[in-house]
Nucleic acid binder design. Structure first.
Lengths: 194, 194
DNA sequence: ATATTTTTAGACAGTGTTGTCTAAATCGTC
DNA sequence: GACGATTTAGACAACACTGTCTAAAAATAT
């Protein structure tokens, strides 16, 4: 039901979503929706909490697959970037979160204040720490790991944003290509000069 | 009036914006709004056309200030990035366009099909050509200028997205810092190796 | 099988919005 | 100042949505 609400909120926006649609999507009656959630707004809050938690969890589970001891740095980082794109940035939850942030972030900042502190900030920190470790191990030359982490993420998803916004279907190949381009550029900047 | 409609559509979203608000914002009566535009949707179309045109014009006017003959490449590119951020990415029109794309891009792709062809694509091409020229002149080493142009834009705006979404006030200093970071990284990757 | 809880369909009032209409007021132009 | 065009305020019907209510139905537990 949270699931259905997420789908509809994502598709229609908060103002555009109506409870009947959500109920239909969930396969329950409208009354049941009101039975579980006081009103539309508290339903939104529940949905946001659920989705942000799931996104965070997924992000950290992908972070755990970071190539700490790379065999082929370029290939390993690319595979990592692909996982990031597939499981965090390009999936339905990621799209939902981005869209909702864009829509309601300015109006209801408190809705996302929790996510803001525990989401991107923590992910950036964790990723920065990984890069710093790679630098320490001699794979990279990085002066500002925090900036590098943010840059890695920005590069990784940038080529996919536009198709994603227009609802184009992203092939596995697109993901690979975009990720490979990002990593190539990242390593050009930060790989140890020989 | 288009102006007022843009402001309200941007603030409230399409579904959330009501004509009375737009009329009030424009300082005219509701009837006058209907006098100039058939209905809410055609008003949106007019607004989108106006804003995309203005964004494009502004983008190309900033592109015209690209440092083709740089004195200090790093400083000149940074200044260029600042102009890009201030006049295209972080201004009200840029925010409006991003938000509207995120909201309605998937539902009404035809609304933006014109922008999609003549906006980002052309800007990327133009920027790529500039970078290619800089490479040819010996300033840069770039294998794929198109990718480099997209990466430059992604890096330039990435650190500003989140504050922008939450409506934080961006100081001139933030703009400078973010742009400088982006250019530093860009040049680490693509500056001619000595 | 019976009791208890939950769900359902439908009706309902209240509210907000859209788009139309009208008669008065305001404006620009001669 | 007079005339044609435009704008205005306000009323209006039509519609959609929210959130509540009820009595029947279904599911669950005992």
């Amino acid at each position: 039901m949270i699931e259905a609400a997420a789908t509809v909120f994502c598709r229609e926006g908060f103002a555009g979503a109506n409870i009947d649609l959500i109920a239909a999507e969930a396969g329950v009656s409208r009354q049941t929706v009101y039975n579980h959630h006081r009103d539309k707004e508290s339903l939104l809050v529940a949905v946001v909490r659920e989705i942000t938690e799931r996104c965070n969890a997924r992000a950290f589970s992908v972070l755990a697959t970071f190539p700490d001891h790379p065999h082929d740095l370029q290939a390993d980082l690319t595979a990592f970037a692909v996982r990031l794109n597939r499981n965090c940035l390009c999936d339905r939850d990621g799209r939902f979160l981005r869209r909702l942030l864009q829509n309601e972030g300015e109006r209801y900042p408190e809705l996302f204040s929790d996510w803001r502190e525990n989401g991107p900030a923590r992910v950036w920190d964790a990723l920065a720490a990984r890069f710093a470790r790679l630098a320490h191990a001699g794979w990279l030359e990085i002066d500002d790991p925090d900036a590098a982490a943010r840059q890695f993420l920005a590069l990784t998803s940038s080529d996919l944003q536009l198709p994603l916004i227009f609802g184009d279907r992203l092939s596995e190949d697109d993901l690979e290509q975009a990720s490979a381009r990002a990593v190539r550029m990242f390593l050009r900047a930060y790989a140890r000069r020989n």
